[in-house]
Design a protein around this nucleic acid. Structure first.
Length: 603
RNA sequence: GGAGCCGUAGUUCAGUUGGUUAGAACGCCAGCCUGUCACGUUGGAGGUCGCGGGUUCGAGCCCCGUCGGCUCCGCCA
C-alpha cells in the first residue's frame, strides 16, 4: 500500500544539505537511486534533479520505516522526514557533494512504486550505458540521469542568456507562424494538409527567413526569435528534422555591425561555462578557409594546415598528377607530426577515409630513418625530398597527399585533417577557438543541371565590389560562369569546427533582387508566383538590413561538450527520423484522412 | 539513394575450426549481514542468439534477404 503525500512539504533538495545543516529536521523527496541493505539498517541514495543524499533507516529506532525500506527498489518515489547528522570520520563520501552528512530517517513514505527499469540508470562508465535505442524508448528514464539533466538545464540557461542578450540590446521578440507556405527552394518541406481548404497544404518553416525580413520592412528595426525550424532531410549526428534557431535581423547595418552581435551573443552565452572568448573574433574569408583548411568551418584548435604541392609538381610526367594540373585541379597535402611510423594498414585506412570524399587515392611520404613514399618509384628520391620540404615536413613526420578537383581535394583533406586530429588526440578540449568566415560565394554550380543555385539563399546581397561582375554575368550569357566568382555578404560563425551561426546582409533593392532571381534561372512569372508577396513588400521602402541565425543545439553541444545532438534535446528522433518513445510517425484514423481529402497509396 | 559498424538473458558483453547442456558481470527474486556508498555473502529465476530463408548430419557462428540502432557520403537555400 502506497503512502499519500498529504500536506508534507519538502524542506530541501537532495543536493543541498551540508555540514552546517547538521541537527536540522528536514524532509526530502526523490527517487531511490540505490539501496544498500545491512539487515538491521538500510542506506538509501535519494536522488532528485539537484543531486543525491544518503539517508539511513535503522530498525532499532524506526522499525516501521525500516520495514517499508525493505520493500523499496530502484526508482521508487519516496519522502523521508528526519534529522541531518554528521557522518563519522572515515565514513564520509568525497564523491558526493552531500557526502559529509546523511539524513537519519524518522518517517519514510513510499509515494510511488516503480517497475524494474529496462536498463540501469547508474552505471560505472559511459561504455556500460544501455544501447541508445533502448534509452530512447524510455526517454523519461534516460533523462533522469544526471548527465542529461545537466545538458537540458544548460540548454535552458543558454536560451535564457540569449534572450537576456538581445533584450538588453533593444531587440524585440516576435513570433512568426508555424503554418506557412511551401516555397520550392532549399530543403524539403514538411507539409500540413488544410481541412478547410481541401487539397491545399501549409508548410512548416525551414526557417523564418522571409518573415524576419518583413519585420524589418515593417519597421521593427531589431527582431529576434527563438524559432523552431523543420527540414525534411536525412539526419546526422548534429542534425535533426526539427531544431531550434536563434533568429535575428536588424536594419540600417553593415556586416561588421552584425558580426558584433554574433560575437556579443556567443561571448555572453559561453560565459555560462566560464569561457572568455575574444571581444572581436578572427575574421577569415571563405577563400582563405578553404585554401588553408579545406573547410568553410575549420577547427582552429589545432594546426596541420593544408599545403599546396602543385608548384613543385609542375611539369611532372607522373600521369595522375599531370592530368590534375592540366585540368586546373590541385595537389595538396597535410603534414602529420611525428607519424613517420604510420603502418601500411593505417595508411590504407586513411586512404579509404579520403575516398569517401571522392579522392581517387592518397599518396604518402614518411620521413623516418629512411625516406619512404608511395611515390618513390614514380617521382624519385630527389623529388620526394623536395616535396617533403615544400610541405614543411621534418624528420619523423608523415605527409599525406591528395590530388584532384579543387572541391574534392578540399573536402577530403579537410575531413582527413579533422579525422587525424581526433585519432591522434591533437585537440585540446579546454580550448575554444572561434572565427567568422566571410565572403562566401554567392552561387554554387550544380553539376547535374549545369546551373547556378543560391549558396546561402536567394535574398543574399552580393558584395558591393562584385556588383558589376554580377550584372555582367546575369545580362551577358557568354559571361554566365562569372556567377561562380561573385561573392556574397554572407558569413558564418564557427566555434571549434562547428558552424554555429550563419547569416547575410540581404538585398533590399528590388532591381538587385530581380537580377538575382534571373541569375537563378527564375522567370519573373515564377518568382512572382513564389515570392510575390515579398516582392510587393520590397516595393514599399525596405531599409538595408541583415542578420543571422544560430543553431541552439549546436551551441549547446559546445556548452556541454558532446558530439551528439540528441544529448541536448529532451525528445530527439533516431537517425531514421522516428520517435521510439511515442512511436511516431504513426498511421492516422481513416476518417481524419477523409476529412482532408487524402488517399494513401500503397508502395 | 549509397557505404561501414553493430544486433546473444532486463542491461553490458564473452562465445574457439560449425559440434551435443549458450556463459560472465550488473540488475531481478529469496535469505544472511551494525557503516555501506561499485557493500559483502548464500541460493535462485531468467534466452524466439533481431526476424525470414538457405547450406549442413548438425548453425549463435557460414550464405542470401529483411528489420532496427549508430556513423559517414549524397542531401541539409
Amino acid at each position: 500500500m502506497l503512502d499519500v503525500l498529504g500536506n508534507l512539504e519538502r524542506t530541501h533538495s537532495c543536493g543541498e544539505l551540508r555540514e552546517q545543516n547538521v541537527g536540522e529536521r528536514v524532509v526530502l523527496m526523490g527517487w531511490v537511486a540505490k539501496k544498500r541493505d545491512f539487515g538491521v539498517f538500510t542506506f538509501i541514495d535519494l536522488r532528485d534533479r539537484e543531486g543525491m543524499t544518503q539517508v539511513v533507516v535503522s530498525s532499532e529506532t524506526v522499525a516501521e520505516a525500516h520495514a517499508k525500506a525493505k520493500s523499496i527498489r530502484g526508482e521508487f518515489v519516496i519522502a523521508v522526514k528526519g534529522t541531518v547528522v554528521s557522518r563519522a570520520e572515515g565514513t564520509q563520501n568525497a564523491k558526493l557533494a552531500t557526502g559529509d552528512i546523511e539524513v537519519k530517517v524518522e518517517e519514510l513514505l513510499i509515494l510511488n512504486d516503480a517497475a524494474v527499469p529496462p536498463f540501469q540508470l547508474e552505471v560505472a562508465g559511459s561504455e556500460n550505458l544501455a544501447a541508445e535505442d533502448t534509452r530512447l524508448k524510455y526517454r523519461y528514464l534516460d533523462l533522469r540521469r544526471p548527465q542529461l539533466q545537466h545538458n537540458i538545464r544548460m540548454r535552458a540557461k543558454a536560451v535564457k542568456a540569449i534572450r537576456e542578450y538581445f533584450d538588453g540590446r533593444g531587440f524585440i521578440e516576435i513570433e512568426t507562424p508555424i503554418l506557412l507556405k511551401s516555397t520550392p527552394e532549399g530543403a524539403r518541406d514538411f507539409i500540413v494538409p488544410s481541412r478547410i481548404h481541401t487539397g491545399k497544404f501549409f508548410a512548416l518553416p525551414q526557417s523564418p527567413q522571409i518573415l524576419k525580413q518583413i519585420t524589418m520592412i515593417a519597421g521593427f528595426d531589431k527582431y529576434y526569435q527563438i524559432a523552431r525550424c523543420f527540414r525534411d532531410e536525412d539526419l546526422r549526428a548534429d542534425r535533426q528534422p526539427e531544431f531550434t534557431q536563434l533568429d535575428m535581423e536588424m536594419s540600417f547595418v553593415n556586416r561588421e555591425q552584425v558580426y558584433r552581435e554574433m560575437e556579443g551573443m556567443f561571448n555572453h552565452v559561453l560565459k555560462l561555462i566560464d569561457v572568455d572568448l575574444p571581444a572581436e573574433w578572427t575574421r577569415m574569408t571563405y577563400a582563405e578557409a578553404m585554401r588553408r583548411y579545406g573547410s568553410d568551418k575549420p577547427d582552429l584548435r589545432f594546426g596541420m594546415e593544408l599545403k599546396d604541392l602543385s608548384e613543385s609538381l609542375k611539369g611532372t610526367d607522373f600521369a595522375p598528377f599531370a592530368d590534375t594540373l592540366e585540368k586546373s585541379g590541385e595537389i595538396k597535402c597535410i603534414v602529420v607530426k611525428g607519424k613517420a611510423d604510420y603502418s601500411r594498414k593505417q595508411l590504407d585506412e586513411l586512404q579509404e577515409f579520403v575516398k569517401r570524399y571522392g579522392a581517387g587515392a592518397m599518396a604518402w611520404i614518411k620521413i623516418g630513418d629512411e625516406l619512404t613514399s608511395s611515390l618513390l618509384k614514380v617521382l624519385g628520391e630527389a623529388k620526394i625530398t623536395e616535396l617533403a620540404a615544400a610541405a614543411g615536413a621534418a624528420k619523423g613526420d608523415a605527409v599525406l597527399i591528395v590530388a584532384g578537383k579543387r572541391s574534392v581535394v578540399a573536402a577530403s583533406l579537410g575531413a582527413l585533417r579533422n579525422e587525424i586530429a581526433r585519432r591522434e588526440n591533437l585537440i585540446d578540449r579546454s580550448k575554444y577557438e572561434c572565427l567568422i568566415v566571410t565572403e562566401f560565394p554567392m552561387f554554387e554550380h550544380d553539376d547535374e543541371t549545369d546551373t547556378y543555385i543560391a549558396a546561402h539563399h536567394p535574398f543574399t546581397s552580393p558584395m558591393d565590389e562584385d556588383l558589376e561582375m554580377f550584372k555582367t554575368a546575369v545580362n551577358d550569357p557568354s559571361q554566365h560562369n562569372l556567377l561562380g566568382k561573385v561573392r556574397a555578404k554572407a558569413y558564418d560563425a564557427v566555434i571549434n569546427g562547428y558552424e554555429c551561426a550563419g547569416g547575410s546582409i540581404r538585398i533590399h533593392q528590388k532591381d538587385v533582387q530581380a537580377l538575382n532571381f534571373k541569375a537563378l534561372g527564375m522567370s519573373p512569372e515564377s518568382s512572382r508566383s513564389q515570392f510575390g508577396f515579398f516582392l510587393d513588400a520590397l516595393e514599399y521602402g525596405t531599409p538595408p538590413h541583415g542578420g543571422f541565425a544560430a543553431g541552439i543545439e549546436r551551441t549547446c553541444m559546445i556548452l556541454v561538450g558532446t558530439e551528439n545532438i540528441r544529448d541536448v534535446m529532451a525528445f530527439p528522433k533516431t537517425a531514421s527520423a522516428q520517435d521510439l518513445m511515442m512511436d511516431s510517425p504513426g498511421v492516422v484514423d481513416p476518417s481524419q484522412l477523409d476529412e482532408l481529402g487524402i488517399n494513401v497509396v500503397d508502395e
